[in-house]
Design a protein around this nucleic acid. Sequence first.
DNA 1: AATGAATGAGCCTTCATTCAT
DNA 2: TATGAATGAAGGCTCATTCAT
Lengths: 223, 223, 223, 223
Amino acid sequence: MQKSSVAPVEAPSANDANEETTRKGRGDRRQLILDVASEVFLKEGYAATSMSEIAARLGGSKGTLYNYFKSKEELFGAYVLRNCELHRTQLGGMLTEDGDVRTVLAAYARRYLELFTAEKTLQNWRVISAESAKSPEIGRAFYESGPLQGVKLLAGYLEQAVRRGELRIDDPMQAAHQFISLIHGRMIKARLLNYIPVPTPEEIEPEVQGAMFVFLAAYGVKA
Amino acid sequence: MQKSSVAPVEAPSANDANEETTRKGRGDRRQLILDVASEVFLKEGYAATSMSEIAARLGGSKGTLYNYFKSKEELFGAYVLRNCELHRTQLGGMLTEDGDVRTVLAAYARRYLELFTAEKTLQNWRVISAESAKSPEIGRAFYESGPLQGVKLLAGYLEQAVRRGELRIDDPMQAAHQFISLIHGRMIKARLLNYIPVPTPEEIEPEVQGAMFVFLAAYGVKA
Amino acid sequence: MQKSSVAPVEAPSANDANEETTRKGRGDRRQLILDVASEVFLKEGYAATSMSEIAARLGGSKGTLYNYFKSKEELFGAYVLRNCELHRTQLGGMLTEDGDVRTVLAAYARRYLELFTAEKTLQNWRVISAESAKSPEIGRAFYESGPLQGVKLLAGYLEQAVRRGELRIDDPMQAAHQFISLIHGRMIKARLLNYIPVPTPEEIEPEVQGAMFVFLAAYGVKA
Amino acid sequence: MQKSSVAPVEAPSANDANEETTRKGRGDRRQLILDVASEVFLKEGYAATSMSEIAARLGGSKGTLYNYFKSKEELFGAYVLRNCELHRTQLGGMLTEDGDVRTVLAAYARRYLELFTAEKTLQNWRVISAESAKSPEIGRAFYESGPLQGVKLLAGYLEQAVRRGELRIDDPMQAAHQFISLIHGRMIKARLLNYIPVPTPEEIEPEVQGAMFVFLAAYGVKA
DNA sequence: AATGAATGAGCCTTCATTCAT
DNA sequence: TATGAATGAAGGCTCATTCAT
């Protein structure tokens, strides 16, 4: 029930202007609730979010909320599931193109840092990892359909590059993890703890170059 | 376990061995409160922790709590500050010894993963990073006196190694960040989201080796 | 006693006599809360009144209280506003009648003392004036819609009397203030500080006569 | 015990600089406490005043407070008693001088309004009258040794004036009450409820003149 | 399906007071 | 006498959840 209702999220811009009011139906309202709830969870974290605020932002009543989600926890779960796509969709695309491995990986790294130093993404991470302590399933679900998928895509790309003779890697999954870790570098941690503000592209570049240098030193094919 | 690691914090200048037992007074009680509070914050996170529970575990009254800490927030702040040492003290020591760079770094990496895959450390991280969103100062303070100090120590060590001709590094701080990132690799993230249980030394070893391989490929001196 | 005097406040535009019993709903409950709160504020003063006690007397829960009034302060504000009418309604009527100025003013004076030496009215005054120190707006609001209105009505009446040739007054507002002050005389102050008990009509009469004598000596027409 | 320790309050500016520290003795400390407590009661009212704040302002501990006063209530009682003098001392002196009755009374009225429109005096009144509801003795004690004494002094003066043939009064006590009431006029009430700010001498004058006019119309000797 | 009133448990905090030192 | 640590009872307020309409 939850998962199936996630897919349609991606198609909010349909040309059904006149239907809007007619079929206020099932899924749409649920999605709307989820949208609003996401905003609040993201801003406040799980514990500090109140069902009242969600209801207020929605314009509806709290009772209605409970018609769609049995509890605050279930609503939070739905929010988490919905936020996994970030990892998959936003970065996966970068790896499909042909082109020099160095160029592709560098672009991937840039995009990665851009995305994961954004306040929203960080807050998402904070909220979910905080809640993982008490609800292991939540963390698990998120890891599996989020970060893990991302690494797998990257590993797949690396494998191709190996086959093309552009890289020399024994364990592509490990290498993928390492590449992502290298990108993380100093920035993600510093951002997570609010030590630095959102970086500019100019600040991101050295991080990318540093990561590329190390990664290629280990896995690149010598000239 | 917790209590024993607290004592050194408060009594660094103590030469009053005989008074110790007499004045169960001021500081000790504060420490006791902090101990108990830490347990609860660690288990529940900031928002879900109630002063009542802390008081109950203490056996004392809530009023007493507030005689020592003006507010829940202040108590949390004290908890955060106290937890910065982990990063500094537990790992710094590993870098002072003489010995082959490879050996030292590998040992450091092992200890790092051992430490940061422990439930307590992770939970500490989750709790503090979650709170960083709303109280940037807290995250900042933690980063500066925790992770950042750790990196600096490592960078210092790397610099020495460079001077000894054992490594070839332009930017030691960046290299230190990268080394730590490489150690992080897959495990910290996976642990943070409860995707995997606490790893055994056998599971840790390949991570260490992988990190060493990449790092040395980039910064080691050939032959 | 209290309830009956509340009804007119809320239902000035009511032509829904048959619905009355049906919708025990919104407004009625609010009124009920205000009734109970008034009792308690009156008895205890603002600071010593607890929302818990109000809720307990109501038979409802504290949460419900807060559904109707955002805070204790707001509830108190509503109570103050509600109590302004006393001044307006209870005394204004006395001035509309035709009749000898002396008779009318004496009757007004009698009624005034009767009303303002009553425990409830005094306590109301004590509570509101006490709170004026910290919340000037509350005192202001009360003064404007309570005492000030009363004086204005009286001033209006005096003006008529002047036009009828029954009095000779330059500044009717000042004269009105003076008349009321003269009525106050010794009693209000003494009652306010609990120096004397509620006076009987026999005790009130000399006060009235004394006030009339002085007032007319200044503003009456000779002969 | 309480009353006897009140007198010395008036002599804080003695030339005993060196004794200060020596005889920290009994009464002085009590007086100091009372001074500080008065400030706070005056500013906050009874209920909102906390023993902690008094202790804090004192620099001492709460325990010490309780060594001098058995309870908050007793401390408040002592404060009330101490504040009665205002009425007696500050105004009584004005009536001893020789001089035209009109001049003396007008000066008295001026001084009265000056004194009783001051924030401190009003707040004192608010606080004590508010507490009178719950502790009738407190109000009684204050009335008797404060306002009542003032009226008696005035009545005595009026009686003299009658003997001197300057006034014609049957009941001097009633006349005294009436004169004071007339002075009260609009201002005291308006000030009490924070409807107007502290008046200037220019604003006070018309009130005084108005009161004089009415009073003399009733009690003055013609020609 | 939607509402919104009602609830009661619980939260953070403050306070007057006591008591051992 | 002076201290200040300890207390436990409230206090104001919020919240997730339920249920009659």
